[in-house]
């Protein structure tokens, strides 16, 4: 009797193991949270220094069009980030817009039009595209896209448009494969029901499949935009890196990331020049938060509709 009592009251080996496992997972989770938090605090601390210790007005920073941190004007350093912010947004939006029709078309090929060929040929191609390092894209952009731009539009060839084309290829696989997932998650039943009602294949795709997959496709777009917004190396190689307000798509310009990658190694920690770069990093961080938020909102709204 006592033996049974004892064995019930004392923890079994399995439940001890389970507890140990739980503790380890929680510690890992806590560690990750801590690291993320530390990164946030660090970037925020550094990024805000521009405004607190260097006394740059936040409006001058966000709205100023002159970026020249080494030079001071009326006692304030020239750190207007608008050219880079504009550059980043332009490149991101253009690349995503350009990629979208290709992504949806390719995804439809893979799910609805020629699923067999789609999965046999397009799937590996997409996976390959994802795996190519961004420096390679940048290099191809530099040797092919930039001269091409030069021959068509004149000038140096560097600029937003060259960046757009390079990013287009880079976000295409992301958007496509996520769109494929969204299309695949549309139940087969919807397709059969639509066809059985006398709809053609295109009507079915347009009215049922794409419409049902819209939240998923929007998520894919936002993911693509997040990727484009954060891409540094390849863009930096073709965008021209002139911190000027973009006046033309084929004139040298810059993005948040390109200014960061070119500048961060050449400044000294604690100087205005360095602080200003951290402020740019803070904008990037906030933007990626915004993208994440958008993804969650879309996912939630998609669920509600169901």
């Amino acid at each position: 009797m006592d033996k049974i009592r004892e064995s019930i009251l004392t923890k079994s080996h399995a439940s001890k193991l389970e507890r140990r496992g739980k503790i380890i997972s929680f510690m890992c989770l806590g560690g990750i949270c801590l690291i993320v938090l530390a990164i946030f605090i660090f970037i925020a601390y550094r990024g805000l220094a521009t405004f607190t210790s260097d006394h740059v007005s936040i409006f001058k920073f966000l709205g100023g069009t002159k970026w020249n941190p080494e030079v001071t004007e009326n006692g304030h350093p020239l750190v207007g980030a608008l050219p880079m912010i504009t550059g980043s947004f332009l490149i991101t939006i253009l690349a995503t817009l350009l990629a979208l029709p290709f992504a949806i078309g390719t995804a439809l090929m893979m799910t609805d039009i020629t699923p067999k060929m789609g999965t046999r040929i397009l799937q590996p191609v997409l996976e390959l595209l994802v795996g190519i390092p961004s420096v390679v894209y940048g290099f191809v952009g530099l040797t092919v896209v930039v001269p091409f731009m030069r021959s068509i539009f004149g000038g140096s060839g560097f600029g937003i448009l060259a960046g757009t084309f390079v990013l287009f290829v880079m976000v295409l696989p992301t958007i496509t494969s996520m769109t494929v997932d969204a299309l695949k998650s549309v139940p087969k039943d919807y397709r059969s029901a639509s066809l059985a009602l006398g709809a053609t294949r295109w009507q079915t795709i347009y009215k049922v499949v794409l419409r049902t997959a819209t939240p998923g496709i929007l998520t894919a777009i936002v993911f693509g935009m997040a990727r484009a917004f954060g891409e540094a190396l390849a863009v930096q190689m073709v965008v021209g890196n002139a911190a000027l307000m973009p006046t033309s798509l084929v004139a040298p310009a810059s993005t948040l990331t390109s200014v960061l990658t070119t500048g961060i190694g050449n400044t000294v920690l604690g100087t205005v020049q360095n602080d200003a770069l951290w402020s740019l990093a803070l904008i990037l961080l906030l933007m990626s938060l915004a993208f994440n938020l958008a993804i969650h909102l879309i996912a939630k709204r998609g669920e509600l509709k169901r």
């Binding site: 039943d189 059969s192 029901a193 009602l197 006398g198 709809a199 009215k207």
Partner: peptide, 28 residues
């Protein structure tokens, strides 16, 4: 398929309003 309609084993309305479901065949 307009003259021979079909109802499936699992109810499979489209994720749309009741009205849009019913008039789907006419709209297409």
């Amino acid at each position: 398929r307009k003259q021979i309609g079909m109802v499936f084993q699992q109810p499979n309305p489209f994720p749309m309003s009741i009205y849009d479901n019913v008039v789907y065949g006419l709209r297409v």
